[in-house]
Design a protein around this nucleic acid. Sequence first.
DNA 1: CGCACACTGTGTGCGCCATACACAGACCAT
DNA 2: ATGGTCTGTGTATGGCGCACACAGTGTGCG
Lengths: 243, 243
Amino acid sequence: MEELPRVLQQLWGIEGRSRPGPKPAFHISDIARAAIKLADAGGLGAVSMSKVAAELGFTTMSLYRYVDAKDDLYVVMLEHAFAEPPVLDPELDWRGRITAWAEAFRDGLRRHPWILQIPIQEPPLSPNQLAWMESGLDAFDGTPLTPQDRLSAMLLVNIYVRGTAQLTANMRTEPDEVREADRLYTERLTMLATPDRFPGIAATLEQPLDEGYAGDFDAAEFGFGLTTVLDGIATRITHTRTT
Amino acid sequence: MEELPRVLQQLWGIEGRSRPGPKPAFHISDIARAAIKLADAGGLGAVSMSKVAAELGFTTMSLYRYVDAKDDLYVVMLEHAFAEPPVLDPELDWRGRITAWAEAFRDGLRRHPWILQIPIQEPPLSPNQLAWMESGLDAFDGTPLTPQDRLSAMLLVNIYVRGTAQLTANMRTEPDEVREADRLYTERLTMLATPDRFPGIAATLEQPLDEGYAGDFDAAEFGFGLTTVLDGIATRITHTRTT
DNA sequence: CGCACACTGTGTGCGCCATACACAGACCAT
DNA sequence: ATGGTCTGTGTATGGCGCACACAGTGTGCG
């Protein structure tokens, strides 16, 4: 039984009792707030120990009294950016519940696109992360799925939301820039993906309504793909029920 | 009509005609080989301009004669790590074909786990990347899906493979380390996810056969989830056919 | 009541990184 | 042959994460 890393101890509120020495001047939540502010404004690249410290009005090295390493800073940011998971309406069926969950997740990623840039080293163990996991699993209450199947299904939706967010997240905050990048991309793709060598891609480009790959992956498109994922889960549910 | 970035020009073999000056001592493919060697051994973090240059026996700055910036290095690495897409057996149905495609993709990610660490800035435009896209789209030949639907379906499978690889890719090459990390994770999760506050997670942990979240996401588990995704696509196909 | 000592925030410094820039030499078109 | 352009190189800059020593602070224990 190994000790929990210090970050997790702090996030779970395992307080050290009163100790000698000066009182801490701030709290990890202050660090999180400052770091999130920087990341929202300039992406994860704008978050450095010195910038965060400057934002708080302290020196760089003071942060290391609260956080063991930069990776821990990411953990704290993540934990604060995703606060409480949505309360799922028990009146809805599982599709309605997991859809609401997925949309809440997507909203979080849209609000804080830098989350997708965080290098993931370990699976999550912090309180809010687990709360989100639990919330996603609970969406399948009432279905005949086994706990493992619920986990797989929740992970599948989780992966889908992350993946689509990744596609649309060109990370530019200005919508004009996004539109321009899309235009440039389709132009180049049209030039490079000639119908003789890339007939499938070329066919996709012929319909100018949808902007093609990496076009506006907006709400409708998101829901459409999510429906496909949920149809797959539904198939497994009915299959489980009949066996 | 803007010029293509230099990296893409080079990858597509748009050669500059013979020019004055000394002949280049090597080629971007040499850079790619050296960088991939480093990344395979020590992850993407082990790839720096100086390390790559040292591997080639040149100075750091010489690389900038071939590549405009570090991001371009990533593009070249990606292009070389994923060589030719698999040739899909036309005898198979779409499920068989896209399954083979997904497995080939997964194999590539397992061979070069650092691919998942590359920060994605722009959608792909390099030759092999497009060839993989085309190959994935072609898997749906013979189905009534529209080109846009094929794109969505291919992206869905693509996202799924990436996502599952992300889960299993604890990035450690030593299987013992992975197993140890899994053990530690389940231990901690069992301690933190108490049944009263996290009943769903706790239920998942009660079945010790599957190691729970981030456990060995091996071939069987991969195929199981992929089946779910393909079932969803199948639902859309039949729905398309009937309308 | 006082004091030892754990703990605080700070300053300095190290090694690594990406990359800008100036330079000496190599080579092709003319 | 020679001018101009391209090559690889050396040097320099600003940023980064973080180790470490230090002076001051405040609590628990004697």
